[in-house]
Design a protein around this nucleic acid. Structure first.
Lengths: 204, 204
DNA sequence: CTCACAACTTGCGTGTCACGCACATAGTGC
DNA sequence: GCACTATGTGCGTGACACGCAAGTTGTGAG
């Protein structure tokens, strides 16, 4: 994930991926949620400085390119949780990790609005947020000492957390909202994190 | 939702929608997850007894057609919860409602596997399961006396429930699993329903 | 009952798109 | 430096989503 950990090929690849994703999101924002069809693949590729064929080597749909940033961010959820101190209670660790991951820096409202409120992007946006579940589930399993293969708890909790983040984002985008995203996140996560992992034996 | 409540037009429309959706899912299952590209729109339309143009009047992508049944089922989640007795505790009501909705009849494993384990369908599948959230959130808000516009609790809880159902389905599909889907659902939902609403009125 | 209107289906045409293939170029490891 | 592999690019092809207009069927008013 750090540049130092990747060779030149991987760094270039990541750079063009981000360039294409950034160009796609920027052009989409310019056209607004109703003019998404006007954003041609050729435009995105040109704006990113690559050929349209190369664009297709990285993404198989416009939606995927536009949501790439959100997807990349979600992939880091597991690492974010693992970076919390091991003796921190689960709900505090998850809350702190997600706030750090999703509010550093504060999200771009225009971009998030484009992703979350454009019907054509709904599927990809859900995919992007859901990508946090796998890594998160593993990190939660490691922290709680549960077995992800046999116990539903880590995966269910991860899905609940990812869903809470999504709901927090939706409410944060609502007009007339003055709260910071961090506050919304804390509220949403508190609805989901009060249940503790099962202590004794449970059906698996 | 009952046929009696719809006029002829609406009934015909629902019938063709289901015919197209059923044909799409059936053909997709026949080709398997790796041969999805071989299922042509023309084939689906022909199998459903309509023109390919009509197919496009109902669905704007193959994925949407294939996942139509799952989407329709999710839309009924709110109604399922509302049909539970008002004095039942929230977690019992939700569990009973979801088990009734998703295990009557027991889901078709081939169909669910196609929908949940085919990468090209991932976005649509998530959309389909997520469609339960809106109606569910309203029903939960009504039951707990919370305001969906001000309080995050109903939406977060609905997202958590929808996520738990999805995770339960994923585990149910894993090879070597002998449990019934109802059992998986109960386990998954128990991980999510133990948290209580933050403050204010709730049922019971 | 009949007639006008609205909803729906269908065929056709068009602009995009995803992707296979082959070749050129750049990074990597010996 | 020299093969070797990964990646970028141009071209061609088949499929698809959707606008448009004409034909067909359900619906409701007079």
């Amino acid at each position: 994930m750090n540049d130092d950990a990747m060779d030149l090929r991987a760094r270039n690849r990541q750079a063009t991926r981000e360039a294409i994703g950034h160009a796609a999101l920027r052009l989409a924002i310019e056209q607004g949620p109703h003019g998404l069809a006007l954003v041609r693949v050729q435009d995105i590729a040109t704006a990113a400085g690559v050929s349209s064929r190369t664009y297709n080597n990285y993404f198989s749909s416009r939606a995927e390119a536009i949501c790439a940033f959100q997807a990349d961010q979600s992939r880091r959820a597991g690492q974010a949780l693992r970076s919390r101190p091991a003796d921190e209670p689960l709900h505090e660790a998850v809350t702190a990790a997600m706030i750090e991951l999703y509010t550093d820096p504060e999200p771009d409202k225009a971009g998030l609005r484009m992703i979350m409120q454009t019907p054509e992007l709904e599927g990809e946006a859900l995919k992007a947020f859901t990508m946090a579940e796998g890594p998160l589930a593993e990190a939660i399993a490691a922290r709680t000492g549960t077995d992800p293969g046999r116990d539903l708890f880590p995966a269910v909790k991860a899905a609940a957390v990812a869903g809470a983040i999504r709901v927090a984002g939706r409410h944060w985008l609502e007009p007339g909202n003055t709260e910071s995203f961090a506050t919304m996140l804390r509220s949403a996560l508190s609805c989901v994190l009060l249940a503790e992992p099962p202590e004794g034996p449970r059906d698996r």
